Lab assay of single mutants.
Amino acid sequence: MQRVNMIMAESPGLITICLLGYLLSAECTVFLDHENANKILNRPKRYNSGKLEEFVQGNLERECMEEKCSFEEAREVFENTERTTEFWKQYVDGDQCESNPCLNGGSCKDDINSYECWCPFGFEGKNCELDVTCNIKNGRCEQFCKNSADNKVVCSCTEGYRLAENQKSCEPAVPFPCGRVSVSQTSKLTRAETVFPDVDYVNSTEAETILDNITQSTQSFNDFTRVVGGEDAKPGQFPWQVVLNGKVDAFCGGSIVNEKWIVTAAHCVETGVKITVVAGEHNIEETEHTEQKRNVIRIIPHHNYNAAINKYNHDIALLELDEPLVLNSYVTPICIADKEYTNIFLKFGSGYVSGWGRVFHKGRSALVLQYLRVPLVDRATCLRSTKFTIYNNMFCAGFHEGGRDSCQGDSGGPHVTEVEGTSFLTGIISWGEECAMKGKYGIYTKVSRYVNWIKEKTKLT
């Protein structure tokens, strides 16, 4: 034993070699072989497995989906700052455009905790909710729209109204504003409101030439003092309507412009014939205590009207009353817009006519005020429907199939267009061939041609 100890002390290297040989010859039971080890760690190889990531292109799944990435790591994937920024906006807080917040056709661009709407022409605001041009839906104005110097929408209202708090709607500024039905039992019968379409306001006024200088022999019209197929109006439903009495009662109609003036057809009036105007009328054979009678003290036909040349060209006249009318729910003026808007309103496509005229061709006159909704007829169809001249200051309205029309005794009465609950004068009943005849239409004086003249002559002093 002493000898062994001496050998170990003198030859430590020998001992180490012996131990190493023993270990190498022993069977290893701690580690699995290569094949079995792979069965336990069965993990798919990654895209760049075996390579240094710093030297390969980034992978979106590896960089940002398996674990949260930084902007720089995302930049490695896209290799483009702009594309990385677009991805980053949604990656950080989701897609803010998912709810489609942009209105009126706006395009949404996502941002971090926010979004941006790219608005089409005519709109602005956070969600493109603000109209900035009158060309689109009248700028959301209830009545009139004008573009300011910086191309912003400025709404306005006709006389007797003021802008509401929203700067879009119009509200009454006087007790009985024009064009409004205020009798409670008839307010439910107000005709369907007309909503502004998209309009090209630059070209809204037709490029028409008034044929002022045409000389033409007097034409022989049949029954051209021209509501057939209409309905009984309720008291106060058309408070701007008046009836004219002269040699015979209810020979023509008219509309209240203001307390002192009536507008009617020029062919209705004769110099030297006494005319009485009755406002607030409903049943011409009954006294309903809503009527107001006034005498006409002055007749002003349009300066281009000449019955000797043509009885229905420039067929418009103004009547001055001896005493002002007292405005109330049964006696209310009709609204008159400017030339541009009167023309736009007419193009809405349908209007209402009213009167006490004959209820059928050569038949009896109506006792109760009649009204009828009539569609506008395109000019080409209008011209083809008659052998008589249709001037540019006239328009056609009615039904091709016949059966409904204005008729004798309705002449001078109103053709009105309702705009968001307020009625505007767009025409004056003038003439036609018979009444409600198939293929024939009622012919009306186009008020847009005469609004400046009306307003100039009827100013209240």
Results as ranks from 00 to 15, higher is better:
Lys89Trp: 04
Gly398Leu: 05
Ala164Gln: 05
Arg294Gly: 01
Ile17Gln: 00
Ala233Val: 03
Met394Glu: 02
Ala250Cys: 08
Val263Tyr: 00
Glu433Phe: 14
Asp200Ser: 11
Gly236Thr: 05
Asn80Thr: 15
Ala266Gly: 04
Cys28Trp: 00
Arg140Val: 10
Glu86Gln: 15
Ile334Phe: 01
Gly413Met: 14
Pro12Arg: 08
Ile390Ser: 13
Gly253Thr: 10
Glu288Gln: 06
Ala149Tyr: 09
Ile336Lys: 00
Ile136Gly: 09
Tyr341Asp: 13
Leu103Glu: 12
Asp405Glu: 15
Met6Ser: 09
Lys146Leu: 09
Pro172Arg: 05
Ser114Asn: 13
Ala26Glu: 00
Phe238Lys: 04
Arg62Asp: 04
Cys178Glu: 01
Ser448Lys: 02
Gly439Ile: 02
Leu103Tyr: 08
Cys157Tyr: 00
Glu231Val: 09
Gly421Tyr: 04
Asn113Cys: 07
Gly280Val: 01
Lys109Ser: 07
Ile17Leu: 10
Asp315Trp: 01
Cys382Asp: 02
Val227Cys: 11
Gly246Ala: 09
Thr332Ile: 05
Glu401Trp: 13
Val77Cys: 15
Trp261Gln: 01
Tyr115Asn: 12
Asn147Arg: 12
Thr81Phe: 10
Thr16Pro: 03
Cys97Asn: 03
Gln370Tyr: 04
Tyr330Phe: 12
Gly427Gln: 00
Val243His: 04
Val419Ala: 07
Cys141Ala: 00
Asn393Met: 03
Ala307Arg: 11
Arg379Ile: 15
Lys68Leu: 06
Phe78Ala: 09
Arg191Glu: 14
Lys293His: 10
Ser99His: 13
Arg83Ile: 11
Tyr22Ile: 15
Lys362Val: 11
Gly398Pro: 04
Phe121Tyr: 07
Val228Tyr: 10
Ser187Ala: 07
Ala233His: 04
Val278Thr: 10
His400Leu: 12
Cys382Met: 02
Val374Ala: 10
Glu35Met: 08
Arg46Phe: 06
Lys45Pro: 07
Val263Trp: 00
Gly13Phe: 07
Cys396Ile: 02
Arg384Lys: 14
Asp93Trp: 05
Ser11Gln: 04
Ser49Tyr: 08
Ser448Cys: 03
Leu460Phe: 12
Ala266His: 02
Val4Glu: 05
Cys141Ser: 00
Val56Trp: 02
Ser184Ile: 13
Lys459Asn: 13
Phe348Ala: 14
Ser49Cys: 09
Asn313Gly: 05
Ser217Ile: 11
Ala192Pro: 03
Phe144Gly: 00
His302Asp: 02
Asn213Thr: 07
Glu124Asp: 14
Lys362Leu: 11
Val181Thr: 13
Ile334Trp: 00
Val273Glu: 14
Ser25Asn: 04
Gly13Arg: 03
Thr16Arg: 07
Phe238Asn: 03
Thr386Ile: 12
Thr332Ala: 10
Val242Lys: 00
Thr381Asn: 15
Glu66Thr: 06
Phe71Tyr: 05
Thr445Val: 06
Thr264Asn: 01
Leu367Tyr: 14
Pro239Asn: 01
Phe424Leu: 01
Cys407Ser: 04
Ala436Val: 02
Ser204Thr: 09
Leu372Arg: 09
Ser255Gln: 02
His34Ala: 11
Ala173His: 05
Pro101Ile: 11
Leu103Trp: 03
Gln237Pro: 07
Arg364Gly: 11
Ile454Gly: 01
Tyr450Leu: 00
Ser430Cys: 06
Pro101Val: 15
Asn59Val: 03
Asn328Phe: 01
Pro414Val: 13
Asn36Gly: 08
Gly58Asp: 13
Glu142Phe: 03
Cys170His: 01
Phe395Gly: 02
Ala9Arg: 14
Asp338Ile: 03
Phe31Val: 12
Met6Tyr: 08
Cys268Asn: 01
Val195His: 10
Glu124Gly: 15
Ala164His: 11
Phe55Tyr: 08
Gly351Tyr: 01
Leu325Arg: 00
Leu189Thr: 07
Phe221Lys: 12
Tyr91Phe: 09
Tyr91Gly: 15
Ile316Leu: 08
Leu319Glu: 00
Asn343Glu: 15
Lys45Gly: 10
Asn80Gln: 12
Val377Asp: 01
Gly253Gln: 10
Cys108Trp: 02
Arg162Thr: 10
Gln143Ala: 01
Thr271Asp: 06
Leu376Tyr: 07
Glu54Val: 03
Ser187Ile: 10
Val278Ile: 04
Ser204Val: 06
Ser385Gly: 13
Glu54Trp: 05
Thr422Tyr: 05
Ser365His: 13
Gln237Trp: 09
Leu41Glu: 14
Ala233Ser: 08
Leu346Asp: 02
Val257Ala: 02
Ala149Phe: 10
Leu319Lys: 00
Leu19Val: 03
Ser329Arg: 14
Trp118Tyr: 06
Phe55Glu: 14
Leu244Asp: 00
Asn295Glu: 05
Lys137Trp: 03
Asp111Arg: 10
Pro175Val: 07
Val243Glu: 02
Cys335Tyr: 00
Tyr91Ala: 15
Arg449Thr: 13
Tyr91Ser: 15
Ile112Ser: 15
Lys152Gln: 09
Ser411Asn: 12
Glu323Lys: 14
Asn138Thr: 10
Arg162Trp: 07
Gly272Val: 04
Arg3Thr: 04
Lys137Glu: 10
Val154Phe: 11
Met394Ser: 14
Tyr115Ile: 09
Arg384Glu: 09
His361Gly: 06
Trp118Ala: 12
Leu32Phe: 06
Tyr371Val: 14
Gly105Tyr: 09
Ala250Lys: 05
Ser354Asp: 01
Val359Ile: 13
Val273Thr: 10
Glu86Met: 15
Thr271Trp: 03
Arg162Pro: 01
Gly402Val: 07
Ser411Thr: 09
Tyr115Met: 06
Arg404His: 11
Gly230Glu: 11
Ala26Asp: 01
Ser430Tyr: 03
Cys382His: 02
His361Trp: 05
Ile299Ala: 04
Asn258Ser: 05
Asp405Val: 04
Trp240Ile: 00
Asn104Trp: 07
Ile214Trp: 08
Glu82Phe: 07
Thr209Arg: 05
Pro120Tyr: 07
Gln408Ile: 12
Val326Tyr: 13
Leu376Thr: 14
Tyr161Gln: 02
Pro101Met: 11
Val242Pro: 00
Asp198Ala: 10
Asn213Tyr: 08
Met8His: 10
Val359Ala: 10
Val56Ser: 09
Thr16Asp: 02
Val202Phe: 11
Phe395Gln: 01
Leu383Arg: 14
Cys108Gly: 01
Glu320Ala: 02
Asn127Phe: 11
Ala207Lys: 09
Gly21Gln: 03
Ser148Trp: 06
Thr389Val: 10
Thr271Val: 06
Pro44Lys: 02
Val263Gln: 00
Asn304Glu: 14
Glu433Ala: 14
Thr389Arg: 10
Ile316Ala: 01
Tyr330Trp: 13
Ile136Glu: 13
Glu53Cys: 10
Arg3Tyr: 06
Gly253Leu: 06
Cys170Gly: 01
Ala149Asp: 08
Thr81Ser: 09
Gly246Thr: 08
Ile297His: 05
Val331Glu: 01
Lys39Ala: 08
Ile443Ala: 12
Glu288Ile: 09
Val243Asp: 02
Glu142Asp: 09
Gln216Lys: 03
Lys109Val: 08
Thr389Ala: 08
Thr332Glu: 03
Lys152Leu: 11
Arg384Ala: 14
Asp111Ile: 14
Lys387Gly: 11
Phe238Ala: 08
Val199Asp: 09
Phe224Gln: 02
Ile112Thr: 15
Glu73Phe: 06
Asp249Cys: 03
Cys178His: 00
Thr461Val: 13
Glu418His: 12
Cys145His: 01
Asn138Gly: 07
Leu346Ser: 06
Glu67Lys: 04
Leu19Phe: 12
Asn328Ile: 02
Asn147Pro: 07
Lys440Trp: 03
Gln96Phe: 13
Ala37Gln: 15
Lys311His: 05
Glu288His: 09
Ile390Tyr: 13
Val451Lys: 03
Ile210Asp: 11
Ile7Met: 09
Ile344Arg: 14
Asp33Tyr: 02
His303Asp: 12
Lys438Pro: 11
Ser217Trp: 10
Glu165Trp: 11
Ile344Lys: 07
Asn295His: 09
Ile210Glu: 12
Leu460Arg: 13
Gly409Cys: 14
Glu270Arg: 09
Leu23Ile: 12
Asn36Ile: 04
Ile262Tyr: 01
Lys438Tyr: 13
Gly236Asn: 05
Gly230Lys: 07
Asn80Ala: 09
Thr215Met: 02
Ala149Ile: 09
Phe123Ser: 13
Tyr201Val: 10
Arg3Asn: 09
